[in-house]
Structure formats: structure tokens, C-alpha cells
Amino acid sequence: MHKEKAIKKYIPMTETMFFILLSLQQEQHGYGIMLHTKNITNKRITLGAGTIYNSLSRLEKDGLIKTVSEDDRKKTYIATKLGKTILKIEAKRLIELCENVKSLLEE
């Protein structure tokens, strides 16, 4: 997928897509993504099997992630260059949001 098109489709990003892309900075399989996300969100987010399967299919089709290895039980993925770029764009947007609400908490 073209960068501009991917920006339009994925930004702002849902939490599901955000944590999947973040987990896939390293090689992971579906279940690993769920564990990693649960871990870094202090159990706030538990991604379900159907949600992960749908999201991985969509991200792979759009070229944000790619398959690294595949045996009959597990398929592992990693973020592509495009996937990393999109996640960084989203990260910048999130930081901007943080800056904007900071004053609210300082009062």
C-alpha cells in the first residue's frame, strides 16, 4: 500500500492496531502479540484471537507487516518499513495530544 493511502486508512489508529504494530517491532506470533500487549498495558488490554487474526490479515494485505516464518502451527510476523513509518506518524500524533492536555492536569 502507498504511504499516503496507509496514513489515510490507519491514522488515527485504533488501540488494537497500535499495540499489534508496536509488538511487531520484534518478530512475534499471534499469541505472543496478545501476551506482549497484556504485559505492557498492565492487563488493561487483552486482545482476542478473532481480533488478532483479522488485524494481522489486514495489516499484511496492506503491507504494514510481513510473514517471517511459517510452520504448520505458528506464523510469525514483523513490521515492515511502511509499518514502522506509520507507527511513528501515529506516535507523533499521540505526543502532540499529550502536549495539548498537559495543562489540564497541571491546574
Partner: peptide, 18 residues
């Protein structure tokens, strides 16, 4: 209940892992 006309072969294994 999950309706899917086509599913790749890792569909079943993803669910089973969970």
C-alpha cells in the same frame, strides 16, 4: 460464532494457541 467464507491456514492455529 465466526462466519468466514475463506480463511487462511493459520486461522485455526491462531485460535487454538489462545
Amino acid at each position: 460464532y465466526d462466519l468466514r467464507a475463506v480463511a487462511s491456514k493459520d486461522y485455526i492455529s491462531t485460535y487454538k494457541q489462545f
